[in-house]
Design a binder for these strands. Structure first.
Lengths: 206, 206
DNA sequence: TGGGAACCGTACCGTACGGTACTTGAATTT
DNA sequence: AAATTCAAGTACCGTACGGTACGGTTCCCA
């Protein structure tokens, strides 16, 4: 993962600073704490600018999601020759990273926000989150799983099913529990290892 | 003593009717649609009664959770002699029921509500949901898993870990996706069977 | 039959938020 | 140097909600 100070040009530096402050407010106090007046005060900008840049409050929320995800890029490993140990390593790293991402303050806050709005806006934010945020991590897992199969180290018929199995083994009900306010795990590496062990028992060839 | 349709006796019939209406409003339009005035109008009661019965809005939300969970009781099967097929059947039934419960309108609405409030009230509603709502289903799964082990049909060291594995295999990211607004699965039985197959591959002795 | 409790319907109050309009001041352009 | 642009800051408006107060009605019980 690398931090990218928005080279994509979607948001100006000023706007990025405001969005960062908006995320800080959201993480701090939930969506009730994110008011237009409060954001303007905290970010030293005017409400009028907020409305000019983002349209309305929903536009601001959508921009916050885009902004956050423009900062998170998953490192894509180049395809090396896979050994059994390397595959296990990569899977564990993936599992660990996944738990870390899902446990992150900003991720939890944005997911809570989207879930809270899902009944009102027809899941617009939810779709944004799933499609943009998940795509990165999905692609990484898929390429890993496919590479494992090509190398003869994994066996499955349905790549999609295998990925969901892996995801479920890693996350279980942890995500929802954290969304509901439970503290994160003490050791994400243990959980990652257990999940990968199980996954390899199910789909490994060795 | 009078016959009270409310099993727990925690709420009077009138209060139960109001809480049922509150759940209906919540399912229909999310937490923004659940206003005290709106509930009073929809349930033909006065706001004053709402405040007398439930204290304030948060008390109403907590009462809604208690009320809903007082209605849902999981059927506890008596302990019969377990065969391999019976265990698989019971596991699949459990998996199916779990998905059905999590996919339910009211469950999703209450989870969304608790998640939305989790940043504000110190996860009070979240704890209520997890502790009261989850306990039933947890106990059912635990007793099933333990019975499987006693019958020599399952092998594991950590019952807690085994249960979380089962849960993850069944649910994967389905719960969060539904909370974010995605439609439910087309066929929950297929998913249940797949999950139980994997679980028995991991922890079955046959 | 009278009195009290519960409760409905409504009106009311304070507040807080989303969104708009206007003024001031600074920076950039011409 | 004048003009134009951009944004900060503030004041304002309408609305909607949580919570309270009160008059009127029904029902129970003595």
């Amino acid at each position: 993962m690398s931090i990218d100070p928005n080279v994509s040009g979607e948001f100006s530096p000023r706007q990025s600073a405001v969005l960062a402050e908006a995320l800080r407010l959201l993480v701090e106090g939930g969506d009730k704490a994110l008011t237009t007046a409060g954001l303007a005060r905290a970010a030293n900008c005017s409400k009028e600018s907020l409305y000019k840049w983002f349209g309305d409050r929903d536009g601001l929320l959508a921009a916050m999601i885009s902004f956050q995800q423009s900062k998170v890029r998953t490192a894509e490993r180049p395809g090396e020759r896979l050994t059994s140990e390397a595959l296990r390593d990569h899977l564990e790293t993936f599992a660990f990273d996944l738990i870390e991402v899902l446990s992150g303050d900003v991720s939890l806050a944005l997911n809570r926000l989207a879930i809270g709005q899902s009944s009102r806006d027809g899941s617009k934010l939810g779709r944004l989150l799933v499609e943009h945020g998940r795509r990165q991590i999905d692609r990484r897992a898929r390429s890993l799983i496919d590479a494992g199969k090509r190398a003869g180290l994994l066996r499955f018929e349905d790549a999609d099913g295998a990925y969901h199995t892996l995801y479920g083994l890693i996350v279980s009900d942890l995500h929802v529990r954290m969304l509901l306010g439970e503290p994160a795990l003490k050791d994400n590496r243990v959980q990652a290892r257990r999940a990968v062990d199980a996954f390899l028992t199910l789909h490994g060839t060795v």
